[in-house]
Simulated assay, not measured.
Amino acid sequence: MDLTVADPKGLIRESYRIEGITPAECRSIFMDWALSLPAGADPHEAMRVVLAQYGTDEAHPMSVILTEGLTRRAAGASRRGGRAARLGP
């Protein structure tokens, strides 16, 4: 994946340039970044690309957020309710 696809708005790049950025600010930027990915783009691949390009400082809050995004999976991510769940198949 190309860096221009992985970080189309340059949000991750800019987050690494902000001095004293907090983890909360990085999470907010991460959400905006994830929503700005092109349709059909693999977010995990995009995280790998931007982390390889910008994440040389493993202690930077954005590096931590990206690494967590790659290692954590949504536990039990399934539909939990609604009319169809109540009525059955």
Results as ranks from 00 to 15, higher is better:
residue 2 D to V: 07
residue 3 L to Y: 02
residue 4 T to Y: 13
residue 4 T to F: 08
residue 5 V to I: 11
residue 6 A to R: 00
residue 7 D to V: 02
residue 7 D to C: 03
residue 8 P to R: 02
residue 9 K to E: 13
residue 10 G to Y: 02
residue 10 G to D: 01
residue 12 I to S: 00
residue 12 I to V: 07
residue 15 S to A: 12
residue 15 S to L: 05
residue 17 R to Y: 05
residue 17 R to E: 10
residue 20 G to S: 06
residue 20 G to P: 00
residue 23 P to D: 08
residue 23 P to T: 07
residue 23 P to G: 03
residue 24 A to S: 10
residue 24 A to L: 10
residue 25 E to F: 04
residue 25 E to D: 09
residue 25 E to N: 06
residue 26 C to T: 01
residue 28 S to I: 12
residue 29 I to L: 10
residue 30 F to M: 07
residue 30 F to N: 05
residue 30 F to K: 03
residue 30 F to L: 05
residue 32 D to F: 10
residue 34 A to W: 09
residue 37 L to F: 03
residue 37 L to W: 04
residue 37 L to P: 04
residue 38 P to I: 02
residue 38 P to Q: 05
residue 39 A to E: 12
residue 42 D to Y: 06
residue 42 D to I: 03
residue 44 H to C: 12
residue 48 R to Y: 09
residue 50 V to M: 08
residue 51 L to H: 05
residue 52 A to H: 10
residue 55 G to I: 02
residue 58 E to W: 13
residue 58 E to G: 12
residue 59 A to T: 15
residue 60 H to S: 05
residue 62 M to I: 03
residue 65 I to P: 00
residue 65 I to N: 01
residue 66 L to P: 00
residue 67 T to Y: 08
residue 70 L to S: 10
residue 71 T to E: 15
residue 71 T to P: 05
residue 72 R to Q: 15
residue 73 R to N: 13
residue 76 G to M: 07
residue 76 G to I: 07
residue 77 A to T: 08
residue 77 A to D: 14
residue 79 R to V: 09
residue 79 R to F: 10
residue 82 G to Y: 09
residue 84 A to T: 14
residue 84 A to K: 15
residue 85 A to D: 10
residue 86 R to Q: 14
residue 86 R to M: 14
residue 87 L to Q: 15
residue 87 L to R: 14
residue 87 L to F: 13
residue 88 G to V: 10
residue 88 G to Y: 04
residue 89 P to Y: 13
